[in-house]
Structures are given as structure tokens and as C-alpha cells.
Design a protein around this nucleic acid. Structure first.
Lengths: 154, 154
DNA sequence: CGGATATCAGACCTACTGACATTG
DNA sequence: CCAATGTCAGTATGTCTGATATCC
């Protein structure tokens, strides 16, 4: 891998393996039936709450999925009354999505609902320094996700 | 969330959000057509290489998926000649899966193939301390994934 | 026979690509 | 007419659950 250090490659592998395994465990701990909303939906809702109304296309770009995939997420959130839509007054092609009062209140409390297991093991198994490491890692991962660096060979 | 600190809950949310977003970006950067094997397959192969032969049931438990899901993973690896199977001499019900020479050599080199993008951004955007944070976080995440703590309400 | 293992079949979730209508 | 947005339809992937056969 020209240009990337062995260290970086190792970090990439370790991180991906850990992510795959932790997500699998989380899936096993909280069956689909237990939760009404999936992660994409909750992340999108949180984004709408914190960053204000946006179009489906903008949300899709922010979350790195296709417009069509995001449209499905929005449809699910609308069906539950967590978000609503209205035509953009300035541009008739666009539809602005915004969080409803119900969506806002859910976004403030949803952690309890969905990641009960993860919260519990974090609180129970990790010391403050380790929790801090995870928080810092999460911030770094978001930075990587949003980087505009291109793969060399593309 | 009785018993879990607010801090732990926040860490859980941040971590899950970051994982979802980074995985989405990774998906966008390396289309499925680019790679012959998925993460479950590569993780399982790596496990067989480092920990020796195991049954499908054991592998499923270790990776937190169902036996049937793991069986599919194994089938794919066998089709590519990366692993092979032989009946357990001691217990006719079991089938031992082991990595072939080809599988071993792939496990040693596969990072380059699959996470080119991730390796590149890690090498390009993160300083050594940040890379270290990710490595430590990955180890902690594996610890959480394999913990035997139960969700309180189950 | 009961318990464990493996496998076959069908379903679902979530994302994807392609095609099309509408608006600016 | 072209570009951008939104939507409909079909596909693919990786997982799940349920049912069945085999072995100890």
C-alpha cells in the first residue's frame, strides 16, 4: 500500500474488526422487535434537531447514503410523526424536512431506549479514562467519515 | 436509565453514531464490486488463522451471529479455497473448519486490498497520538463486544 | 429418546442502481 | 434544453427465524 504506513493499515483493520464485532453483539442484544427505529433514522433525526431543517439530498450527503435511501428513512420518520415536510418557498423542487415537537422530545431521550445494553456495559466495565478514549475515538471517526480525501487509485 | 451514568449513555450514542457514519462512508468509498470478501468473512478467516480450527457453532458464538449466518460465511470462504472442513474425529456431529495455506497467505495481506481508503485517510489525517487512540478504542470495543454482562431488563 | 450440530428454505432489513416526472 | 430534486421499481447483501436431518 504505497504511501500508507503499516501502522495506519493495522489501525484500519483493528478498527473495522472491532466495529463489525461490536455491532453484531449489539444486534444480538437488542433484537429488531425491541426497537421502533434504526440507527440511520435516529442519527438523521438528531441531525435535524441540532442543525435545523434540510432537504433529503442534503441529509443523504451528510450521512453518506443515496438520496433514495435517505428518502426511505425520512418516510419512516414521517410515518411516526417525528419529522414533517414542507415545500421550500424559494425553490419548488426542494422539500424541507424538519423535526416535529415529538421528534425533538424523542431525540432528547432516545439514548435510553435503544442502547440500554451498550450504556450498561460501558458504565459497568470501563473506567473514566477508557470512556474518554471512546469519546475521543468517536470524534476522530466522524472526522474520517467526513474527510474529503480521495482514495489514490480513483 | 437507572444505574447507567449520563456520561456512559452519551458515550454510547456518540460511538454508535460515529460507527454508523464511518461505515456508511466506507461503503461509499469501496463499492461492493471492488472486493471479493466482506468483513464477516475476513474477520472469521483471521480468527481461524490466529486461533486455529473451530466449529461453525463456536465461530458463530465468537462473532455474535447465528449458526446459519456463520455457515453461509464459511461456505463462501470454502468456495474460494480459503478454508476447508473435516469431520471432528472425536465427535461425528461436529465439523472442524480450518484455514488453508491460501487462506493464511490472504489473511496476511488482505488489509491492503480492502481498506485502502481507510488506511489512506488514517495515515493522511491523523497524527500518531490519534492513531493510538483509535487502536486503544478498538481494543476496548472488542472487550465490550465479548463481555458477558446482561442487559438489566432481560 | 433428548440434546447438539448442521443444513435447507423463506423472510426481512437496509442499502444499492436504474428510470422517470417535475421544477427552475 | 439542461441540471437538480424527488419518487417508483427492482436488485443485492447479510442477517434473521423456522423446519428438518444427522449424530452421540
Amino acid at each position: 500500500v504505497a504511501g500508507t504506513s503499516k501502522r495506519a493499515a493495522q489501525t484500519a483493520v483493528e478498527l473495522m474488526t472491532a466495529m463489525t464485532r461490536l455491532r453484531a453483539r449489539l444486534r444480538a442484544e437488542s433484537p429488531l422487535t425491541d426497537m421502533a427505529w434504526n440507527w440511520s433514522q435516529l442519527n438523521t433525526l438528531a441531525r435535524l434537531v441540532t442543525e435545523g431543517p434540510a432537504t433529503t439530498t442534503e441529509l443523504a450527503q451528510a450521512e453518506h447514503v443515496r438520496r433514495q435511501s435517505m428518502a426511505e428513512t425520512i418516510t419512516a420518520l414521517r410515518a411516526d410523526g417525528l419529522v414533517d415536510a414542507e415545500p421550500d418557498p424559494a425553490d419548488g423542487r426542494k422539500t424541507l424536512i424538519y423535526a416535529t415537537a415529538r421528534g425533538r422530545s424523542l431525540a432528547a431521550t432516545f439514548p435510553a431506549a435503544r442502547e440500554a445494553w451498550l450504556s450498561t456495559v460501558i458504565a459497568g466495565l470501563l473506567d473514566p479514562a477508557e470512556q474518554q478514549t471512546l469519546l475521543k475515538a468517536a470524534a476522530i471517526m466522524n472526522r474520517l467519515a467526513d474527510s474529503n480525501m480521495q482514495e489514490p487509485g480513483r
